[in-house]
């Protein structure tokens, strides 16, 4: 270590215990010129007598972990949003150049015949905007009627699947059932199209708060029940000169076990909670200079696995995976006020 940094460190250490280690590092990274200037200015203070260190009132440092499972699904669109998107899709059908059919579909192939049948039914190349005519005398009739399903995502998905499953001949067959000849075209057998998984899972229906397969469109946070029976985020006291990042990794292992594939995001905390001991507790405690505890929360993402409290060393008895508003109902009011801003809305 060089002389300039030494000086700054010494200066800063004399200012008092209210500066954290990372701040101290930042301050000591000043250019030499400013550090030297500061040293010159405070030269007279160097003569002050050095008092023996006395334990000043302080807070115990805790590292907490905010384990979250990010949303896996897109959010449900607002009705206005989906109506707007449908409007834009229909507008596009009217304004865009016509679909270049011969580039994509060869003439006189089964695909070509299928295209002709289907375009007669739905009038547009787009398959998810309903029956819509962008040109002609009735082009003005482009409004969606009351109670129409066209703008809803579920309806559009159904239409896309229907289009993939059928070849467009069914409706015609239905109309002319009596006229159909015996030697008519054979019905095309198609593989059933794989349907998308439901957005609501089994865990949602059961209300299983321990499952990670719940509320797929929201962030879920791990909340645990500690020795005192309070619902909090997992946390533990820092040991020695442990950094917050290392402590977070330790707390992860000691609370949730090894069965979680996790990632501690960055080296800085995302929030903090301060707990002041009541005077009665202070009077009884062995360390009266410790006024309370400050918990700094590190952000952790869970990629796979599940929490397992069987062999936890923090005395935890239960856990839940909760969305933001459920966390509010579960935790203490004062605790909620300090943690609410680090939880994502979605």
């Amino acid at each position: 270590m060089n002389a300039g940094q030494q000086t700054t460190r010494r200066l800063v250490s004399r200012t008092g215990p209210s500066i954290c280690r990372s701040c101290l590092d930042t301050l000591s990274r000043q250019p030499y010129s400013t550090a030297a200037a500061a040293a010159i200015q405070t030269e007279p203070q160097e003569a002050l007598p050095i008092t023996p260190p006395t334990p000043s009132p302080s807070y115990a440092l805790h590292a907490g972990i905010l384990v979250s499972r990010p949303p896996l699904l897109t959010r449900p669109p607002h009705p206005f949003e989906s109506a707007y998107h449908l409007y834009q899709k229909r507008l596009n059908e009217r304004l865009a150049l016509p679909f270049t059919r011969y580039f994509y579909i060869k003439k006189n192939t089964p695909g070509d015949l299928e295209w002709k049948r289907k375009i007669k039914q739905r009038l547009t190349p787009a398959r998810d905007i309903g029956r819509y005519r962008g040109y002609g005398d009735e082009a003005w009739n482009d409004e969606v009627l009351v109670g129409a399903q066209e703008s809803e995502m579920a309806w559009q998905v159904e239409r896309l699947l229907e289009d993939a499953e059928r070849d467009g001949g069914e409706e015609e067959g239905k109309k002319g059932e009596g006229v159909q000849t015996v030697g008519g075209p054979k019905k095309l057998e198609r593989e059933p199209v794989e349907r998308p998984m439901p957005r609501v899972t089994e865990a949602d229906e059961k209300g299983d708060v321990r499952s990670l397969g719940r509320l797929l469109q929201r962030s879920l946070y791990l909340v645990v029940k500690n020795k005192e029976g309070e619902w909090v985020f997992p946390q533990d006291r820092l040991i020695g000169k442990e950094s917050l990042h290392n402590a977070a990794e330790r707390v992860l292992v000691q609370s949730g076990g090894y069965n979680m594939n996790t990632w501690v995001v960055g080296n800085v905390p995302v929030g903090h909670y301060q707990h002041d001991f009541v005077p009665e507790h202070l009077a009884k405690s062995a360390n009266p200079t410790e006024l309370g505890l400050k918990t700094f929360f590190m952000k952790v993402r869970i990629m796979a696995g599940q929490a397992d409290l069987k062999s936890n060393k923090l005395g935890l008895t239960d856990f839940k995976w909760l969305a933001k508003e459920e966390v509010q109902k579960t935790v203490d009011e004062k605790y909620w006020r300090s943690i609410k801003n680090m939880l994502a809305e979605r």
Binding site: P71, Q88, K89, V268, V270, A344
Partner: peptide, 28 residues
């Protein structure tokens, strides 16, 4: 015309990536 949808990647950016980048690159 457009937009026609709210892309999945954009939503992931808003809900997950942006806040993680903020935490990763924040300098106190």
């Amino acid at each position: 015309p457009g937009p026609f949808a709210s892309p999945r990647l954009e939503q992931t950016y808003q809900s997950t990536i942006a806040s993680d980048l903020m935490t990763l690159t924040y300098h106190h």
